[in-house]
Design a binder for these strands. Structure first.
Lengths: 214, 214
DNA sequence: CGGGTGCTTGACTAGCATCAAATGTAGTGG
DNA sequence: CCACTACATTTGATGCTAGTCAAGCACCCG
């Protein structure tokens, strides 16, 4: 297991930076086009990754062939940390993306706080459970847009990059329902959609979006 | 943060036991009645717990006052490990329960693999996402019964202990829908329900249950 | 006995899935 | 340049599933 091949030390110092020390590891960052596979279910899990730019989708396939997207990872987020030695899910790029691998070779030290990564991903997964179960389709989509907007705190216009089908498989809805919800958000004057694929969001009423997403 | 107040060391030795060494810590196990609070949202998070017997529910309250149960913890399972210094959820006993606390005082070493606990809880949360989003109400209830049955691998009869309302808040359904699903499972001759509160499950067709839960 | 709690069942309704089709855009080849 | 295909998105019509509201039953306890 990954965590048994590493030595992790946590001191009483609060805060923890992954600064230049971590970045000078011999593993170089990797640039990928859209929809490229990073790893697949069943593969041996020896590497974790940090997203430097772009976005990655982590998903599973059910017995019936349905795709379910567990999470999207944006800039700065980590993925690929597994409970066992084998991948239980798939990782693919959503768009052109740079990722930085951290390999766990024998006796190698990963200069990274694995526990912090695991707990952050756990918190994300728990929050997603709340979004999915408690809320209507419209609220789920609003929560998704808000999650994306949170990655661009400065801008009121940004590119989601995910297709409607990605969003549907992430929120447990159908493509049609997602499209209808975006239409409702437009009609409520909460956002505008631009770009040929309607994936560029311009936030008109951020407060209303937040009120709806909670 | 918990993980910053502890020193955790993982060697290359595979496997990791929480044997007598951990159990001789000065923290004694605690016996609680049903529906007692272990901790609440907003409290300072300094302790993690292992369930010795019984069951614990971990839940959150939404802005609208709805309860959502993130997980049930049974014998051997750990809870209370938080991302920050403050509790984000509530922990209560479902029934008469024994728990063992592990406090993270300054300079104290927790003789426990926190990363392993975090990753196990992450895997549980991810699996629950799949159950909740992909499946019909009947399949969700079947998956819940299967999860409970997995905690009693030897017995074909066991006490779930959770109320219908607990199960509903866990699966994102209503009490009525849960009751209707149990009725369907009975009519399909997959299980029988006994006890005055109908919480004792007798598995009649385990294979059919598994087939339904996946 | 009456009141409280937890479980079940029935009737009705709202919301999402499904099926189907239209639109807009890009790319290809004649 | 236009015809054609391919793909992503949107919209409409319809049906089913689970939520809502309501009532009834079983059990327990004062």
């Amino acid at each position: 297991m990954l965590q048994n091949q590493t030595i992790v030390k946590h001191t009483t110092v609060t805060g923890h930076r992954y600064g230049s020390a971590a970045r000078t590891a011999k593993d170089q960052s990797i640039r990928l086009k859209a929809d490229e596979t990073i790893y697949s279910e069943g593969e041996h899990a020896l590497t974790i990754y940090q997203v430097e730019s772009g976005a990655v989708r982590i998903y599973r396939l059910t017995a019936s062939g349905q795709r379910y997207i567990l999470s999207f990872c944006g800039k700065g987020e980590w993925f690929g940390l597994e409970t066992g030695t084998v991948r239980t899910d798939f990782a693919e790029t959503v768009c052109e993306t740079c990722i930085k691998p951290f390999r766990a070779n024998q006796n190698a030290v990963i200069p990274v706080d694995l526990l912090h990564i695991a707990l952050t991903n756990l918190a994300k997964a728990q929050h997603k459970q709340l979004v999915i179960t408690e809320q209507s389709a419209l609220k789920r989509v609003a929560a998704f847009v808000y999650e994306m907007a949170d990655r661009h705190p400065a801008d009121c216009e940004f590119d989601m990059m995910m297709s409607r089908s990605d969003i549907a498989d992430y929120l447990g809805l159908t493509v049609e329902t997602v499209a209808r919800c975006f239409t409702k958000l437009r009609k409520k004057r909460i956002l505008c959609l631009n770009g040929k694929l309607q994936r560029i969001v311009r936030l008109v009423d951020r407060d209303a979006l937040i009120a709806m997403a909670i």
